[in-house]
Amino acid sequence: MSTKENPAAFRYAASHEWLNASGGSAVCGITDYAQRQLTDVVFIELPPVGKKVKAGDRAAVVESVKSVSDIYAPVSGEITEVNSRLADAPELVNSDPFGEGWLFKISLNDEGELQRLLTKEGYEKTIQGEKA
């Protein structure tokens, strides 16, 4: 599996979620680094649309062959949409983590929270720290 570049326009959480914000809402997923650690994703428990979450709350659960992992909301807000394709094609999280493998969309309560997330460079430093 070839490594995929972390998009420069996205923001990241140290717990390996990404967020792509525009106009008061954001798309969220997990990073390529995360999907490689998890191994093949076989099932994703997604949040109900309308659920209100705070930054750091569990928003989804990813079942992979090797592990089960909580996915946290990178920011506070309300879940406005989930990626329904993942029900039949969870492998999209592995094959296209920054694109078709997105998990949920969230409306932002406070755009100021985006400042607390990591940039691409900051996230890549975090990964290097984990590897060491």
Binding site: V42, F43, E63, S64, V65, S67, V68
Partner: peptide, 13 residues
């Protein structure tokens, strides 16, 4: 020892 199959897609750990 017992073997089992899940009805949903939660992987037993």
């Amino acid at each position: 020892l017992c073997a089992f199959v899940m009805h949903d897609r939660v992987v037993p750990r």
